[in-house]
C-alpha cells in the first residue's frame, strides 16, 4: 500500500473519522467538513452514530437522512439504514410500487438486525454511492466509535465472502474498489492525550491495518493542553509556591493568590501526565503515520464559533 502522506487528506473523496467516545470525534468531523466547504468543495458530513449531535456544532436542528445545509456548501445527514435500503430498492430494483417498499424495507431492517453485515453494508453503500454519483466533492463520515468502524470498513469484503451470487455481491465489488483506493478513501483516528484513548487509538490503528485494506491516513490528537512554562520558568514557579514568596505575591497583587497558584499547579500536572501519553502514542503507532495536534479549547460553549476555531487549528496543521 502506498504511504498515506502521498495523498493529502482533503484531496480525497471519502474520509472516515473515528475515535473513542469523549475525545471530540464529532467536533473534528464537523471542523473537517467546514474546512473543506470553505475551500469551495461541496461537502457532506454524515453521522452514523445513533443519537448523534453533529448538528449542534453548527447550531442547527438535528440531522436527518435527507441532507440539510449546515453552512454554505456544507451538508449534514444522519445515517438511517432503513431509509438507505428504501432508497437503494427504489433506485436499483425499480420496484414498481413504491408503496410496497415501506413494509418490505421494515422487514428487511428487522432481518438486518440479526444478519451480519447488512446494516454495515447499507451504511457504507450509501456513502460510497454519494461519492460515486459525485453528489458531493468530499464526504466526511462521523463514524461509530472505535471497534465498530472496522466492521463497517470490512463489511463489503466480508459480504463478498458470505454471499456468493446475487445483486448484493455484484454491488460490493465497486465499493471494495473505492474503499481500498487511498486516493479516494481515508480514515482518521481522533485521540486525546489520556491513557485509555491512547491505548485504544494504538489498538485501532493496528486493527485497521490488519483487518481492512482501507488507508489509515492520520491520527489527530485533540485537547492538547498548553505548556505553561518554558526553560527556566518552572523554577521560578516552584519558588513562587513557597509560603514566603506566595505571601509576598498576594501582597503585591492585593488579593490572595493561593487558588491561582493551585490552579497553575493543576495545569502543570495535567499537562505533564498527558505528555507521557503523547510520547507513548508516538512510539507505538505504525511508522510514518502523520500525527496532527489540536489544542484544548477553553471555551464556554460548543457552537459554530468553536467549530470554526477547531477548523482553523486543523487548517494550520494540515497546511491547507
Amino acid at each position: 500500500m502506498s504511504p498515506s502522506a502521498d495523498v493529502p487528506l482533503l484531496d480525497r473523496r471519502l474520509v472516515f473519522v473515528t475515535g473513542k467516545g469523549g475525545v471530540g470525534k464529532t467536533s473534528v468531523a464537523a471542523a473537517l467538513g467546514l474546512l473543506a466547504a470553505e475551500h469551495g468543495r461541496r461537502t457532506l458530513v454524515c453521522e452514523v452514530d445513533a443519537k448523534g449531535n453533529l448538528a449542534d456544532f453548527f447550531e442547527a436542528a438535528p440531522n436527518r437522512f435527507k441532507p440539510q445545509e449546515l453552512a454554505p456548501g456544507l451538508f449534514g445527514m444522519a445515517m438511517n439504514t432503513e431509509e438507505s435500503l428504501k432508497e437503494y430498492l427504489s433506485l436499483q430494483l425499480r420496484v414498481p410500487l413504491i408503496a410496497r417498499v415501506g413494509p418490505l424495507a421494515r422487514s428487511f431492517d428487522f432481518v438486518a438486525s440479526a444478519a451480519p453485515g447488512v446494516k454495515e453494508i447499507l451504511t457504507v453503500g450509501k456513502l460510497c454511492f454519494e461519492v460515486r454519483e459525485r453528489h458531493y466533492d468530499f464526504v466526511v463520515v462521523d463514524a461509530p466509535a472505535t471497534g465498530h468502524v472496522v466492521a463497517q470498513l470490512a463489511a463489503p469484503q466480508a459480504i463478498r465472502e458470505l454471499v456468493k451470487v446475487g445483486l448484493v455481491r455484484d454491488q460490493t465489488g465497486w465499493m471494495v474498489e473505492m474503499l481500498e483506493d487511498p486516493a479516494v478513501t481515508g480514515t482518521v483516528l481522533v485521540s486525546a492525550p489520556e491513557e485509555m484513548p491512547v491505548t485504544e487509538t494504538i489498538e485501532l490503528a493496528h486493527r485497521i491495518r490488519a483487518e481492512t485494506n482501507v488507508d489509515l491516513s492520520a491520527v489527530i490528537v485533540n485537547k492538547v493542553l498548553p505548556e505553561l512554562f518554558g526553560r527556566g520558568e518552572e523554577e521560578i514557579f516552584r519558588a513562587l509556591q513557597e509560603p514566603a514568596h506566595a505571601a509576598a505575591l498576594s501582597a503585591a497583587v492585593g488579593h490572595a493568590v493561593g487558588p491561582v497558584l493551585e490552579g497553575a499547579q493543576l495545569a502543570v500536572t495535567l499537562r505533564r501526565s498527558r505528555a507521557e501519553h503523547l510520547t507513548r502514542l508516538r512510539a507505538e503507532l505504525p511508522q510514518g503515520l502523520p500525527l496532527l495536534y489540536l489544542p484544548y479549547l477553553f471555551s464556554r460553549t460548543h457552537g459554530v464559533r468553536t467549530t470554526r476555531a477547531v477548523a482553523e487549528a486543523l487548517s494550520a496543521e494540515l497546511g491547507y
Partner: peptide, 20 residues
C-alpha cells in the same frame, strides 16, 4: 522579565480553567 512572563502565564491559566 522572565518573572513577569511566569506571572502572566499563571494568571492566564487560572482564567482559562475558570471558564471551564
Amino acid at each position: 522579565a522572565t518573572l513577569a512572563r511566569v506571572l502572566r502565564e499563571i494568571g492566564d491559566s487560572y482564567l482559562n480553567y475558570r471558564v471551564v
